[in-house]
Structures are given as C-alpha cells and as structure tokens.
C-alpha cells in the first residue's frame, strides 16, 4: 500500500468534495421544498391534486435513481428546447441536480406528510378559530411543529442522499468518488484511493448520524 500520491491529489479531491456537497445542499433544499408542496397536495381535499401527487410519489419511488439521473441528462435539454424553441446546453451538473431534487422530493414528501399528520387536529382548529386561513395555519402552526418532529428523519434521508450523489459518475461529473477513482487509475493506486474515499464517506456520514441521534434525544426532551 502506498498512499503518497493521495497527498498530491488532495486539491483535486477537495474540488470533487465541493461538487458533492454543492449537489447535496441544493438537492436537499430543493427536495424538501418540493416534497413539502407534494405533501400538502397529497393531503389536499382536492381529489385530483391528491391523486397527481400520489402518482408522482409512487412513480419516483418505483424507479432506480440511476435511471432518473441518466434520463434527465438526455431529456432535460430536449424539454428546454421544446419549451423555449431553441437548444440550450444543459450541463451534467444542472441535469443531475434536477434529477436529485425531483427524485428525493418523493421521499421527503412521505416524511413531511407523516409529520403533518402527526400534529393533532386541535392545533389546526385553534388556528382557524383565531381567524387564520389555511396557508397561515400551515405555515405558522402545523409545518413548524411537523419539521421539528421530522428533523431527524429528514436528516437521515439527507445522509442517504449524500451517499447517492456518487451516482453522478454515470453522466461524467467529477464528484468526490469519481475524482478519487480517476486519480487512482492514473497513478495506478486505485485501491488506496478507493480506501481513502471510503474512509471519508464513512467519517462524514458517521458524524451526521451522531448529530441525528443528538437531535432526537434533544427533541424528545422538548416534547410535552
């Protein structure tokens, strides 16, 4: 085992990690935002809205993420061309990001939906009784409580997403793992690079899981 070439590859690896984290942060933010809208749609009394959201969620939960990533890579430029009338070059990063957001939204939706359903009906009634409308009741009373309850699950899902970002190798993005693999190939030290990558993924995921546990016990104390 010879780890010497890892040191000289560190700037590249850092670049790769930055791409991974950028993908992660945007995908989590977009995924939770879209997932929350889907959850509200699924719980809506409007049958059509609820059906469409349910169909979306079930569909995306039934197909492999890798398929979605490659599919969007090929299809997003065409969709944009169809919508705007001219070709736009869409990078692998943008198409991957859209794929992650839309895919993860299906999972975040189910978490947020469970969170909303766990809030007692009396909370909504109290909000309505004071003259708040549906949007105010959701935004100010129900969702803040639901997110507090669901924070550990949302984080857990985001850790899974962190690991899944490695799938962008399929569309040629140089994320952390792909950078490590490519540098390993060049230097002939693939094993060392992959071992190193594994350690880094483990350490980051492990720290994040500890934060989840902390959060869980803290929230458990705060509940009445």
């Amino acid at each position: 085992m010879d780890f010497s070439s890892i040191v000289s590859a560190l700037p590249d690896l850092l670049q790769g990690m930055l791409l991974t984290l950028k993908l992660l942060v945007f995908a989590v933010a977009g995924g939770i935002a879209l997932g929350t809208l889907l959850a509200l749609a699924r719980l809506s009394s409007n049958r059509l809205l609820s059906f469409l959201a349910g169909f979306y969620v079930n569909y995306f939960r039934s197909i492999p993420l890798l398929l979605v990533i490659t599919w969007f890579y090929f299809i997003v430029p065409f969709m944009l061309a169809w919508a705007t009338g001219k070709m736009h070059p869409v990078g692998a990063f943008a198409s991957s990001l859209v794929a992650f957001m839309m895919f993860e939204a299906a999972y975040y939706c189910e978490i947020v939906r469970a969170g909303i359903q766990s809030i007692p009906k009396g909370q909504v009634n109290a909000a309505y009784a004071l003259g708040l409308n549906y949007h105010q009741a959701m935004r100010l009373v129900v969702l803040p409580q639901a997110f507090r309850k669901m924070a550990p699950l949302l984080l857990q899902q985001s850790i899974i997403l962190f690991q899944d970002t490695a799938l962008v190798y399929a569309v040629g993005l140089m994320d952390f793992l792909n950078t490590a693999r490519s540098r390993g190939d060049i230097t002939g030290q693939l094993h060392e690079f992959l071992l190193f990558a594994g350690v880094i993924y483990f350490v980051l995921s492990f720290i994040a899981s500890r934060i989840v546990l902390r959060l869980q016990s803290k929230l458990a104390v705060g509940q009445n």
């Binding site: 009396g122 109290a126 507090r148």
Partner: peptide, 16 residues
C-alpha cells in the same frame, strides 16, 4: 372567526 374567541377543552396552545 376573528370576532369570535374560542377556548378548547384541551387548550390547544401552540407548543413551539
């Protein structure tokens, strides 16, 4: 509803 106050059996204060 703005003009009608309502007090519930189980209080329903906002815990957050």
């Amino acid at each position: 509803r703005e003009e009608v106050g309502f007090v519930f059996q189980h209080f329903n204060l906002y815990p957050h």
